[in-house]
Amino acid sequence: TEKQERAIEYIRRLGYSEEEARRILKKANGNPDLAKEIARRIG
């Protein structure tokens, strides 16, 4: 989804690889607090 793409872009800007960014997002899917934090940061 567009939100996922924005989140991946944001995480990659922090210096993670695409693969790492996707792994972090997968974790965020099972972790509402982390997901909220990422969403808050990407606006």
Rank of each mutant, 00 (worst) to 15 (best):
K27R: 14
P32Q: 04
R22N: 06
N31C: 07
I11H: 00
L14Y: 05
E18N: 07
A21S: 05
R40Y: 07
E37T: 10
I8W: 06
G15M: 01
A35P: 01
P32V: 12
E20F: 11
E9G: 06
E37Q: 13
E20C: 14
L34N: 04
E37L: 11
R13Q: 14
I38A: 04
E19A: 13
E2L: 08
L14H: 03
L25T: 01
R40H: 15
I11T: 00
I11E: 00
E5H: 09
A28Q: 02
R13D: 11
K3E: 15
N31Y: 05
E5D: 11
G43L: 15
E2D: 14
E18R: 07
I24H: 01
T1D: 14
Q4S: 09
R40K: 11
R40T: 09
T1Q: 12
R23Q: 14
E19T: 10
L25F: 06
G43E: 12
A35E: 02
E5M: 13
L14R: 03
A21I: 07
E5N: 12
E9D: 14
E2Y: 05
K3C: 10
A7N: 02
N31W: 05
R41K: 13
E19Y: 14
G43S: 15
Y10Q: 06
E2N: 11
N29V: 05
L25V: 04
E5F: 09
T1F: 12
E5Y: 09
I38P: 01
G15V: 01
I38R: 05
A35Q: 02
R23M: 14
Y10T: 05
R40W: 07
K3I: 13
R12S: 05
S17W: 02
R6E: 15
I24W: 04
A28V: 05
D33W: 10
N29M: 10
E19G: 08
R12E: 05
I42K: 10
N29A: 09
K3R: 13
Y16K: 02
E9C: 14
L25W: 06
K27Y: 15
R41P: 04
K26G: 07
K36N: 04
A7S: 05
A39Y: 02
A35W: 04
A39N: 02
L14E: 02
N31M: 06
I24T: 02
E19L: 12
E2P: 11
R22H: 09
K36V: 15
R13S: 15
G15P: 00
A35L: 03
L14F: 06
I11Y: 03
L34F: 06
I24A: 02
Y10S: 06
I24S: 00
A21Y: 01
K3Y: 08
N29R: 13
E20S: 07
R40N: 10
E5S: 09
K3Q: 15
R22G: 04
D33E: 15
A28E: 01
L25Y: 05
R22F: 09
A28S: 05
E20K: 05
I11C: 04
T1M: 11
L14M: 12
I11P: 00
R40D: 11
L34G: 03
S17P: 04
K26P: 00
L34V: 11
R41C: 14
K3D: 15
I8L: 13
L14P: 00
I38L: 11
K26I: 11
L34Q: 06
K26V: 10
G15S: 01
K36T: 07
E37M: 10
G30K: 04
N31K: 06
L25A: 01
I42Y: 13
R13E: 13
I11N: 00
N31Q: 07
I8G: 01
K27D: 09
I42V: 11
E37K: 14
R41W: 08
N29G: 14
K36A: 07
A39Q: 02
E9M: 09
R22I: 09
A39L: 04
S17V: 02
I8M: 07
P32G: 06
R23A: 14
K26W: 11
K36Q: 08
E37I: 13
K27N: 10
R6H: 11
N31A: 05
E2W: 04
L14W: 05
K27L: 15
G43F: 15
A35D: 01
I24V: 04
A7D: 04
R40P: 02
G15D: 01
R41Y: 07
D33T: 11
A7M: 06
G30N: 09
D33V: 10
K27Q: 14
L25H: 01
E20H: 07
R6C: 13
I42L: 15
I38V: 06
E2V: 11
S17M: 03
K26C: 09
N31L: 06
K36W: 07
S17N: 07
E9W: 08
G30L: 05
E20P: 00
I42E: 14
D33R: 11
Y10P: 01
Y16D: 00
L25C: 04
A35Y: 03
K26R: 14
R6M: 14
S17L: 04
Q4V: 14
E18Q: 08
I38N: 04
R12C: 08
A28H: 02
A35G: 03
Q4N: 09
E2S: 12
I11R: 00
A7C: 09
G43N: 15
R40G: 07
L25N: 00
K36L: 14
K26E: 11
T1E: 11
S17Q: 03
I42S: 13
I42W: 12
G15H: 02
K3L: 15
G30F: 11
E20I: 08
A7H: 03
N29F: 10
E19N: 09
R41L: 11
D33I: 09
G43T: 15
S17F: 02
K36S: 05
R41H: 11
K3M: 15
S17G: 05
Y10D: 07
Q4W: 12
I8S: 02
E18K: 07
E19R: 10
L25R: 00
G15Y: 01
L34W: 07
D33G: 08
G15I: 00
R23Y: 14
R6N: 12
K3G: 13
I38T: 04
Q4H: 09
E37H: 12
Y16H: 05
A7V: 11
